[in-house]
């Protein structure tokens, strides 16, 4: 980000921000509402992730294009109008593609509008950067969010239904872990993934610097 004194990121670094270093699910722990609610199956997670990514890329692009024209007093209102527009568009698109997915995601499609990742990106990144850089960053964030959702959704579908993408993995006698498709399962799996990510992260940076790593505080 264009903070004075900070080195400008290359395009690749900008893209990788959202996938690893600033992953919305595992690092920033943002947008937990859809993450926990819809990640009961791999298909649902992927659709939700892609829908969010679509809204993220389109709205941040538009915000970045008009960033110099919008008075700062009404910028949040403008962003929300733009985000809401693309959410509505995505809502129609999903209905047109698959009603099954639409019904499975339910109100959470409309709720993308209040997903803090999108408003956060619009305010913190798109309003200060040129369109190309913005789109690259948003694409990384969107893919990172999709990966996060998919990581949750696939584990929950495997344990909760014995399937992945609806394909049975263990045969007809599989005993589903009912809790995994219920809300508590979302928290359990998210906790496990956060544990893994933090462990990997602390090991990586610990090895790099050869010193114990302090616990990181997420803002």
């Amino acid at each position: 980000m264009a903070i004075p004194g900070q080195k400008q990121l290359t395009h690749l670094e900008e893209f990788m921000e959202g996938i690893w270093k600033q992953n919305p699910v595992f690092v920033m722990v943002l947008g937990m509402c859809p993450t926990l609610a819809v990640s009961v199956s791999a298909v649902n997670s992927l659709s939700m992730g892609l829908a969010t990514a679509f809204v993220l890329v389109c709205s941040t692009l538009l915000v970045s294009l008009i960033r110099k024209l919008v008075p700062k007093e009404v910028r949040i209102a403008t962003y929300i109008v733009i985000i809401a527009t693309f959410v509505t568009v995505v809502d129609y698109l999903i209905q047109a593609i698959s009603l099954t997915v639409y019904e499975a995601l339910g109100a959470f499609i409309q709720l993308i509008v209040v997903n803090c990742i999108i408003l956060g990106r619009a305010e913190a990144h798109a309003s200060k950067n040129p369109p190309l850089r913005t789109v690259i960053n948003a694409l990384g964030m969107g893919i990172g969010f999709t990966i996060g959702l998919f990581a949750l959704g696939s584990v929950r579908e495997i344990l909760g239904a014995g399937k992945l993408f609806g394909i049975p993995l263990f045969g007809p006698d599989f005993q589903p872990w009912v809790v995994m498709v219920l809300p508590p399962g979302g928290f359990f799996v998210l906790g496990a993934w956060l544990l893994l990510f933090n462990w990997l992260d602390s090991r990586k940076s610990g090895v790099a610097r050869g010193e114990p790593v302090e616990g990181r505080v997420h803002g």
């Binding site: 872990w177 009912v178 809790v179």
Partner: peptide, 10 residues
């Protein structure tokens, strides 16, 4: 409590 939620039938 976990297995109660996970395997309510058993």
């Amino acid at each position: 409590a976990f297995v109660q939620a996970a395997f309510p039938v058993s």
